[in-house]
Design a protein around this nucleic acid. Structure first.
Lengths: 192, 192, 192, 192
DNA sequence: GATGAATGAGACTTCATTCAT
DNA sequence: TATGAATGAAGTCTCATTCAT
């Protein structure tokens, strides 16, 4: 019984790597099977189709991400620490799983309605969670009276973008770009 | 000679629409031809392959985008106006051509080295341009002494992320999220 | 325009041979293509699927059969001659296309509703046509007052069965079994 | 030892149902196993392959059929009663096991030489048995001097065809078609 | 130059068969 | 003995690309 779960897990992890590298349509079931170290037919013992494998892979990582996020943030005491932690986790996730985030975004429109729904719900949950944090900060009087959703998206977008750029550009001035700078910038603004 | 260019242009525009909707691998040459109103074989009169068509399509829109950006910004006089114009153009582009930006990002890794290079150069040019603007603002004393690259990426990422979220989430609280709020936030920060 | 029809026809004829020899499920599209002298993909230019090819093949031969049958019978003047002609044609068809009749029967249940309907309609048309002939003979007073449908089926079944047996058994006493004997038997009965 | 036979028997009976419904190639070993209430692997404990299972299933039912036929007919005293009994049994078998007869016919050509031989021998035995009955009737002076093989095949074919038509057409005039009519027709002919 | 019928490589998926338990 | 998870050969179908017209 444990073994069955292990093999399904194995396939999901292999699928994640291949889907991230190639996207849904370029990825082949053959290669996922090879990466998982199982036969091609075995994939179909655990998943109805390539599409279904993609969906279950997405669900798995979406949940994993959200659970970890909540767990880490709830350890922090103050709003400011929670906020910083959120940004740090976003950064960490983007570093480790930026490709996953990318493919979630990109394929969300194309694979089908179910994928789109998962993505949308996941995204809304995140934004809401972050917006709630900011709203709490506003209520406590440590933040200006900004729109919490705009702020949430700005924060998330900045972190995301910086990370993607670092991965993408690699050999350039990406060294000097770091999250410490970003924290300062987002908290204090650019204007003198 | 003029006619030839017209037909090539026609195919590139059709290709853009189909590639944006379906991604590189799901898109079919047949449908691009149909959209362009030409025969399937005609595509191959103007482009060596589907991949080459994608590359040329990308080059075309990357240039178009950059030229328009520069032209619009250079019309503005002050640093602050240039910066605002930049943000507005980014927003406009994301609104009109967000799907194009998405596909550029997503497929950049997969299609081949040439695509990746185009993307990277384009991105670096943009970041550099924006960072230069910010640096000029710092030099003029209107901005704090932030890292210009971090700031550039944060601005670009925020705009991008908000736009994507608006498209993606649609029916939610996206109404209250707007660029005016974002301007204020990025310029003045969140802290009281 | 003529050529297109020729190639579709070519595929239908090849499909008939392979389907007859192997049955629907054992038959492969590859081999049908090879038999027709076209590429595998060409099959799909003319038919949506293997199943659709089977259906269209069936429709084609069902019509061909029925048209020829009617045409030949209408040339005859008297009821008795029409009846004999019918039996002779049935025999001829079973000789030439017995395998086709077999596959029609066998696969009719399995391929899908559409196939079943075609088969059923075709069968009803035939039975009705034959029963009408017999009824006309009864009305003219040359036949006893038998049930025309029973008689039609008995005649058709006898001819069919004899032919199948001849094909099937081949090397046995099939020489002495012939249609002349059958005519006599069916017209005059077995009892002294 | 008894148990082993029981399980083998169980599989044969399940196989018959599935093969009859789907034909050899469409039928799956999985479903046969499920129907028999055994594991998939168990099938291979008793049969070398799917093909071998089909062959053994055929042999079993061919023998069963023939034994029952002989036993029933030998109970009758007169030629005429034996003949009638034969027709009634054929009818009964076609009613109960028409699908089996169908698949025997259809797949006989395709599965392999061994199947073909079984079928052929079985058929020859039946025809011969029936022809012998008719010949005996001729010798006794109750039948005209018809060709006994032709008559045998005509009788068998008529019964078969009527039965198949009843199953196939169902909702039509099949009510008025019955074996009593057929008896009369075959014995007395159609001519006045 | 323009076309689209023809092609076949390669994708997803099924299922008979094996074998470790 | 009985099982069913695992497998990979083989099938259907798609689609980028070619080439005769």
């Amino acid at each position: 019984m444990k073994k069955v779960k292990d093999k399904k897990q194995l396939i999901i992890e292999a699928a994640m790597k291949i889907f991230c590298r190639d996207g849904f349509h370029k990825a082949t079931v053959s290669e996922i099977a090879a990466k998982a170290g199982v036969g091609k037919g075995t994939i179909y013992e655990y998943f109805d189709s390539k599409k279904q494998l993609f969906i279950e892979m997405m669900k798995y990582y979406a949940n994993l991400y959200y659970e970890n996020l909540i767990a880490a943030i709830e350890k922090e005491k103050t709003i400011m620490d929670k906020l910083k932690r959120y940004i740090l986790i976003e950064e960490e996730i983007m570093t480790k799983h930026g490709d996953l985030a990318q493919i979630f975004m990109r394929e969300a429109y194309n694979i089908g309605l179910e994928v789109h729904k998962i993505m949308k719900n996941n995204r809304i949950k995140q934004i809401q969670f972050f917006a709630d944090l900011i709203q709490a900060g506003i209520d406590e009087g440590i933040f200006r009276n900004v729109n919490p959703y705009t702020a949430a998206l700005a924060f998330m977008g900045s972190v995301h973008h910086i990370q993607v750029s670092k991965i993408f550009i690699k050999d350039s001035y990406s060294e000097e770009i770091n999250i410490e700078n970003l924290h300062d910038l987002l908290l204090n603004g650019i204007k003198k």
